[in-house]
Design a protein around this nucleic acid. Structure first.
Lengths: 132, 132
DNA sequence: TAATTATTGCGACTTAGTTGCATTTGTAAA
DNA sequence: TTTACAAATGCAACTAAGTCGCAATAATTA
């Protein structure tokens, strides 16, 4: 089952390439307008994620965010990094900080997910928004 | 607005005290049966969380889990620790490991949320369940 | 150019979580 | 110990995120 170069996939990928932040399904829906169906966005993101093109974070709002990430390319993924979600402007971005996970003996790790919520530089300046 | 010692609150707190793992709303619903209404569980957990009695993690499944935690008591909370969610038995537990968050200048942190998914010791032995 | 099969759109569905409102019940004060 | 007030409950209706089956469409590959 190989992937096809469809309009939806191309449109979504170019959104990712034109921005440095992560997107939720809903953010993409807003950006793409009527041109791509809701279910298609969900499925396309899932495929991009399965293919290792983007990585996925579930933020404290319970929503999935997807991001293109230099380290996502290639076979050996390194996604043990933090994410930041601004409670005011709602942007989600990858942080530099890596986390080295140490589990008790016998535990097997499959996935790591970490988000810090707060206020980004711009929003902190304006002291905008309310903590959730 | 002070809290009242109601049947629901007592029942939920004693569930927490009799277990060392975190609970989702749904897990508590199963444990408490018909005795407490669904919406009441949601509201009670929210209040316990607001009061700092329990802390809250949103796992990679997008679901909220709540846990009683030694460090939750008192005014100064230290929840910068990892959580582990077993993909097979679905238990969610607090890990010892603390994470020291370093954000870029100007950023303000409000909340930290980190979960590792995988297989716990027992389930890893039986090589059970499928990765999500 | 035709056949194959991945992908799409649509609508119906599931699950987590919230909310308005009338009723019940802790609690503190009389 | 009763009363009164506000907090908490139950219920039902609702929202939002995400999934799925199915028929139709379109990207590949031969």
């Amino acid at each position: 089952m190989s992937r096809r170069n469809t309009a939806a996939r191309t449109a979504i990928l170019s959104e990712f390439e034109s921005a440095s932040t992560a997107f939720s399904h809903e953010m993409l829906e807003r950006r793409l307008g009527e041109s791509v169906n809701r279910a298609t966005i969900y499925r396309t993101l899932k495929r991009l994620w399965e293919d290792g093109v983007v990585h996925r974070v579930v933020a404290t709002d319970g929503v999935q965010y997807f991001a293109l990430c230099a380290e996502c390319r290639g076979d050996d993924h390194h996604h043990e990094h933090l994410h930041f979600r601004c409670l005011s402007c709602e942007r989600v971005e990858c942080m530099e900080q890596e986390v080295v996970v140490r589990l008790p003996t016998g535990y097997r790790s499959v996935n790591f997910n970490a988000t810090v919520s707060g206020f980004c530089r711009e929003c902190a300046k304006q002291e905008g928004g309310l903590p959730e």
